[in-house]
Design a protein around this nucleic acid. Structure first.
Lengths: 227, 227
DNA sequence: GTAAATATATGACAAATATCATAAAGAATA
DNA sequence: TATTCTTTATGATATTTGTCATATATTTAC
């Protein structure tokens, strides 16, 4: 069965808003794509033809600015809408999307979604709600970053992976120091140095990509007092 | 007549998507509010009861974080939806809104808008489009700021007021140096110093709040090469 | 498996930005 | 008008962050 995943946010929206015959057609129109780590499956400038949804895995949204510098906009986790920030507003993507781990993407034809928005107001309302929340998250994030020192920025990144992605104190960082630099706006060396300092201060243990958070309170304090 | 403003974006959406009897009821339900400079008409934490639209003037969206520091999120100009970023997603505002100049706000009851979204899919689609575009602007803005030096940040602010608000090379800055600091994440002294430097370098003339852009190309070059 | 490329790490130094102090000008208030 | 408060301004100095150089470890390509 195609629409059988547990905890599927979009399925929940469908069940809450669609009448059952709409739901059936919808599930049949779904495509599932299994992608390995490091695959760029949406490219900045590509025409938007489908609505994508992250079922499993981890992704990054990133873009290249006029000067050629790469910036990471945000990280996406399961149940996130991948393509929301442009899909309803523009014809092409203004950013790229790349998997950071093996991921499963659900793909719906854009016309079907658009049609549902047009013909089902309750569905539309839910979509507005979800896209707005997601955009709000990105906005709070960048505003937050803008006001913090390098220590606060790095602490936030580590806490993000611990609290929102892996839930355990030990985990393998899915991003390189360079990618953390692209996300925080810091230089690579600064990122490496701050991680080293955290290690020397006994806040974390580091074995290459492997991070173990030893003193979470301390890390959180650094984050909070870093304004 | 209540719905008689030219260039009203929301009226355009209505005309394009509503049938005429819906439109009539809508215009009658509208309230217009004239506010002088410096009035905070939406407060962080307030319950969201209406949909607000900036007809004339200039506003700032701002918030206070946990540490008590004020941040300016964005500036709003005529035809901007004031309340979009929370209205469909949350029950209360996560930011405040204050006039920077005498402004006129159009107010619609939230229930009416919500009803239209539910019953008119084309209207819903337009609302999604507008809110998404606005959120995208804020996101590009903060990402852009994150990657620039103090010179680039200040140049951007000055160019913003010239290109998007006043259109003339000479204008009165509607914000204090302190507010520019809250917007850019720089310290007040740095903002003042950079403006002074721009003046000493002949890029602008400064008479208190009055700014005259002398060398726009130069300012733009500083902005662009400031990554 | 070896070579090349990339990622991590650290030191030394330079540049960018913040902080503290002080002062003058303007705006708000009594 | 005098007084207080806020804003703008600038210097001196400290702190933060970036750049360049170099080294080792790790990954990728052949």
């Amino acid at each position: 069965m195609l629409c059988s995943c547990n905890n599927c946010h979009i399925k929940t929206i469908f069940y809450e808003t669609l009448i059952s015959n709409q739901l059936d057609g919808f599930c049949e129109a779904r495509t599932e794509l299994v992608l390995s780590k490091g695959v760029t499956f949406i490219r900045q400038g590509d025409e938007i033809k489908s609505f994508k949804y992250l079922k499993e895995g981890l992704i990054k949204l990133h873009k290249v600015d006029e000067t050629g510098k790469t910036q990471i906009i945000s990280f996406g986790k399961p149940m996130d809408f991948v393509s929301i920030h442009n899909i309803f507003a523009e014809k092409t993507y203004s950013y790229s999307v790349t998997t950071l781990e093996k991921s499963i993407i659900c793909i719906f034809d854009l016309n079907i979604i658009n049609n549902l928005v047009k013909t089902n107001g309750e569905f539309a309302r839910k979509i507005i709600q979800t896209t707005t929340r997601s955009a709000n998250n990105i906005i709070s994030n960048s505003l937050d970053m803008l006001g913090r020192s390098m220590y606060g920025k790095i602490a936030r990144v580590l806490l993000f992976f611990q609290e929102e992605i892996y839930f355990t104190y030990g985990f393998d960082l899915p991003v390189s120091r360079k990618e953390i630099a692209q996300y925080t706006g810091l230089s690579i060396e600064t990122v490496i140095r701050v991680i080293s300092e955290f290690r020397k201060d006994g806040l974390i243990k580091v074995y290459g990509k492997r991070i173990e958070i030893i003193d979470k309170k301390g890390l959180k304090a650094i984050y909070e007092y870093s304004k």
